[in-house]
Amino acid sequence: MIQVNDLVKSFKNIPVVDNLSFKVHTGETLCLIGPSGCGKSTTLKMLNRLIEPDQGSIRIDREDIKNQDPVKLRRSMGYVSQQGSLFPHWTVRQNIGMVPRLEKWPKEKIFKRTLELLNLVALEPGEYLEKFPDEMSGGEQQRVSIARALANDPSMMLLDEPFSALDPLTKFQLQKEFLEIKKKLHKTTVFVTHDLQEAFLLADHILLMNSGKTMQYGTRSDLQERPSNEFVKNFLKAQIHAI
């Protein structure tokens, strides 16, 4: 379980995350959603200590992460960001095998794991193993990114708008596959998005943020049926109009 308490982060005296508290239960997916600049990405980056908070605490299974070695912490959290984050000079096989190699797995085990993961993200190993990132479509690259994040079987997943640069069809395809994977693996997941449809589709709980603060925390039906304030109402209305 991830427990975030009274998190504060300011850049140049402007608060970006302002007294934020939330929980992510083990095995569930939380979507952080909100308009640009609401602090959702900053929050995600504090979870794996890319950014250190000014105040507040983050506990994972009751242990404060500021006392943990950042490298170990990050290896326990698979990370997927926007398109273009695969290492361009490495093949699919090298990209997926990176963390296992660093953890000194035997070669055969890495290879077996790579095949397993490619199958999981619905890529034919024979065709993709030796491809470089720029030889693949955006959707294929993101599948590989997910496989790479899962390589050493981390207990958590952090995703930072992984599908936002994809065309709608590919995006929908990947969202469906993400749901499949989620059902299979039950990782504790934090997923940042600005797309309400995506959040409704993938999340167990949704945290709607604005100006670094919680606007509403709840399930899809909580938000739709019991919006807690005008901002939530307007945000839902605007997003649904956009579709």
Binding site: S81, G84, F87, H89, R148
Partner: peptide, 27 residues
């Protein structure tokens, strides 16, 4: 080098030295 690559490398748990020889120098 694209900062997103550095960020994703760091997030995968690469330390400074690993980032240097696996990502920054080759690129």
């Amino acid at each position: 080098i694209d900062p997103r690559l550095i960020e994703s490398g760091t997030s995968m748990g690469l330390n400074g030295w690993q980032l240097l020889y696996m990502l920054e120098l080759p690129l």
